[in-house]
Design a protein around this nucleic acid. Structure first.
Lengths: 223, 223
DNA sequence: AAATATTTTTAGATAAGTCTAAAAATCCTT
DNA sequence: AAGGATTTTTAGACTTATCTAAAAATATTT
């Protein structure tokens, strides 16, 4: 079945909403995420239903079918593989690649995806730390943990803060411990549980236990 | 200016027809190449004219403007860079990459094209031996020469035959000297002007002067 | 549970890109 | 140069994807 980019974008959006919320997805939620009107979503959902890609009853919300879900996961696979390519091979930063990958994910060629995966040596996570679905659509989700839970030599990406005080945010600003920053734990000091970390493969510095307790990270290590 | 893929395809098609024929391009020629009807071409040409991408007078044919030509050449640049990537980095054969490149050429990101070019080490020719336009749209055309005109160590692609006799075509078939095959001249024998060649980086064999005189090649060497 | 607010759907319009069939212009032949 | 053949354009219809405004259904509040 050949789908338009628009149809593909709807499937991907619904998939992401299903990941985030449980139960069926409201028309408004889709409209907001895709930045369109509820009326347009109603129309498109109707079309996707006739193609058996979503289940939908009037006024009852939308859910992807197996088929729709498989297509969405393949799109996410391609998106994240291309992001990995852009960062690993073309030297882009992790925060520059989204828009390009948004276009590249629509390239239709099964063998191209396979070759790209091989070329990148079968990466399991993209540069943002998100898992790359495998060829069968299987996704290994990594739960967020606290930076202080990491062991020596583990690598992770900063995904959020627990303490939202402006003092803490200011500290993060000055130390460049920003969202998406890559961290490697070089040493855990037994005495005070402080950490010696390396930031973005570059400078090393120490952070206190308190800081480690207030930063969420996603571990990139494969289980 | 943001163009649709369809509009981009029209510009590219008109450019290729301008390369092939001199003078303005007929509606039918475009329709045939793009595999659509003359009526559709008339409509689209009208749209492209209002965008100042083509010059067109009713019943008089079409020509690209400077602006239209620049866009077309950039598309061809991207197409050929992606083809080079697919062959050089993802190990596709030269005859497998066209459809993928046809999609990839529409990816909109100036910096991506630049990085890709760098990653590939600024290639001057694509895997089919066609020149890759530079960032300014300059194209260095290579004229076809006879295989027998090549010097030792030169590399070229077979682009055509001079002698169309079935005997010769049969010889080419059995020796795999097909259109697009890559040839490197390893040695030119002084005595009888025969050549020792290497085919597609693999097997070596000898061809007579007569064969060399009846095969057109495009040299890949940069002037 | 009735009234009100919110969400969702329908109805009708618009734009891009396509098509077929018919009309208009140009080209070709004698 | 007239007549026929070919090419090109127009007219009108269809599909996809969108929108606004109004109607219908569902949820929430009192």
């Amino acid at each position: 079945m050949i789908l338009s980019q628009t149809e593909e974008n709807y499937l991907k959006t619904i998939f992401k909403l299903e990941e985030k919320f449980s139960g069926s997805i409201s028309t408004n939620a889709i409209a907001e995420m895709i930045k369109t009107t509820a009326a347009s979503v109603t129309d498109m959902v109707k079309r996707l239903r006739t193609k058996k890609l979503v289940d939908h009853e009037k006024y009852k919300g939308t859910l992807l079918t197996k088929k729709g879900s498989a297509i969405a996961k393949n799109l996410i696979r391609k998106h994240r593989l291309w992001e990995s390519f852009l960062v690993e091979k073309l030297n882009f930063n992790w925060d520059e690649v989204h828009d390009m990958a948004e276009q590249l994910e629509h390239i239709k060629s099964k063998i191209l995806t396979k070759r790209l995966d091989e070329f990148l040596d079968h990466p399991k996570f993209d540069p943002h730390g998100d898992p790359i679905p495998d060829e069968n659509g299987k996704i290994v989700y990594q739960s967020e943990i606290l930076l202080s839970e990491l062991k020596q030599n583990q690598t992770a990406l900063i995904t959020g803060v627990k303490d939202h005080s402006s003092k803490f945010l200011q500290y993060l600003e000055t130390t460049k411990l920003v969202l998406g920053a890559k961290i490697k734990v070089l040493d855990v000091v037994d005495y005070d549980s402080s950490l010696l970390i390396q930031l973005n493969n570059k400078k090393e510095f120490r952070i206190s236990e308190k800081v480690g307790n207030n930063l969420f990270v996603k571990s990139k290590s494969v289980i």
